[in-house]
Simulated scan of single mutants.
Amino acid sequence: MQYVSIRAHKMDAPLLLYLHGGPGDAALPLVMKFNRKLEKDFTVVVWEQRGAGKSYYLFEDDTVTMATFLQDLLLLTSILLERFRQNSLYLVGHSWGSVLGLTFTARHPELVKTYIGCGQVVNMKKSCRRAYEYALSHADNNARKRLLTTDCTYTGDNWLSDLLFVTKQVVKHKGSLYGKINYNKLITSFLFSGCYSLPDLIRRQKGSLQAIRYLWPELMETDFEGMTRFGAPVIFIEGRYDSHVSAELAWKYFEAIETKKQFFWFEKSCHFPQWSENCRFNRLLVELLL
């Protein structure tokens, strides 16, 4: 069973499906808090992906792969389009969700009116190298010693510990959530959302760690650089200072895309432009898509 939130102010509003990051980083309370105004113009669908947040369950075998999530996404899209009698939908993908979203758009362009990528993953190996270099350049002596023994290809025996440490350093030095040294602002939104209980929050934490363990090795193989043509329009919305998933790589890749496209820099954002500058994000989507 997977949890899906559907919210709208009017019956015939176009569908907008949000794909959260992670993997396993469920985001329903954040979308409801920061992007609620989109519900005036869209039927906003937030999918808590399998094993994440309200959809948490224990992965008991190794059959859960990226392909599993893409199959889930195709099924969910088909159900939504049939239920709301629409032919296609708008697809927003953030971080890990941007891998699913862009792959899905390439495979099923007839189902996607426009794809919107935030914190867009392009080449995961290159992005991880840049995140590592950012962490190293800002590290104190103790962190630097630890980083110098870190393998940012995340293929060694201690890959999960290495990944979590580098990510912690990027966050600590304000390369992930703009102007912040931790995610407390986002966690608080979960605690006071009204739609997430404390057990839900615990399940979210368990689901996030589980999904990383299962999916990160495959995620590291992500590379869109050779994919430059899409059958649907593509929009990238990037935080200028994103060092969590390199915004510079997203810009260079965007320049190579050969089909209809638009790119927007958010100057007071890092990895979360949809929440750091939510008013502009919400307004921009209405202006661009409607």
Rank of each mutant, 00 (worst) to 15 (best):
Q2V: 13
Y3N: 09
Y3L: 08
I6M: 09
K10D: 08
L16M: 09
Y18M: 09
L19I: 03
L19S: 04
G22V: 07
P23A: 07
P23N: 06
P23M: 05
G24K: 08
G24I: 09
D25G: 15
A26R: 14
A27P: 14
A27E: 12
L30D: 04
V31Y: 08
N35E: 06
R36C: 12
K40E: 15
D41M: 02
F42G: 00
T43A: 01
V44W: 06
V46C: 08
W47K: 01
Q49W: 09
R50T: 05
G51T: 00
A52K: 08
A52C: 10
Y56L: 02
L58K: 12
T65K: 12
M66I: 11
T68E: 04
L70R: 11
L73E: 02
I79T: 15
L80S: 09
L80A: 08
R83A: 10
F84D: 03
L89T: 00
Y90S: 05
V92N: 03
L102W: 09
A106R: 10
E110V: 05
E110T: 10
L111T: 12
T114K: 13
Y115I: 01
I116P: 01
G117N: 01
G119I: 06
G119L: 10
Q120G: 07
V122H: 05
M124C: 10
R129D: 00
R130Q: 15
R130T: 06
A131C: 00
A139V: 02
A143L: 03
A143E: 11
R144S: 09
R146A: 09
T149V: 10
T149I: 05
D151R: 04
C152W: 15
Y154P: 15
T155V: 07
D157G: 08
N158G: 00
L160Q: 12
S161E: 15
D162A: 02
L164Y: 08
T167Q: 15
T167D: 14
V171M: 14
K172I: 04
K174S: 14
S176I: 02
S176K: 07
L177Y: 15
Y178T: 03
K185D: 12
L186P: 05
I187A: 11
S189G: 11
F190D: 10
F192S: 06
C195W: 07
C195G: 09
L201S: 07
L201V: 15
R204W: 05
K206H: 14
L209N: 07
Q210L: 02
Q210Y: 01
Q210T: 01
T222F: 00
F224H: 04
E225C: 07
E225I: 00
G226H: 04
G226A: 00
M227Y: 06
M227C: 12
T228P: 05
F230R: 01
F230K: 04
G231W: 01
A232S: 14
P233M: 00
V234A: 08
I235E: 02
I237A: 08
R240M: 11
Y241D: 13
D242A: 00
D242L: 00
S243I: 09
F254M: 04
E255M: 14
A256M: 14
I257W: 08
E258H: 06
K261Y: 05
F266P: 08
E267N: 14
K268R: 13
C270D: 08
F272H: 13
C279P: 08
R283Y: 12
L284Y: 04
L285I: 10
V286P: 01
L289A: 02
L290P: 15
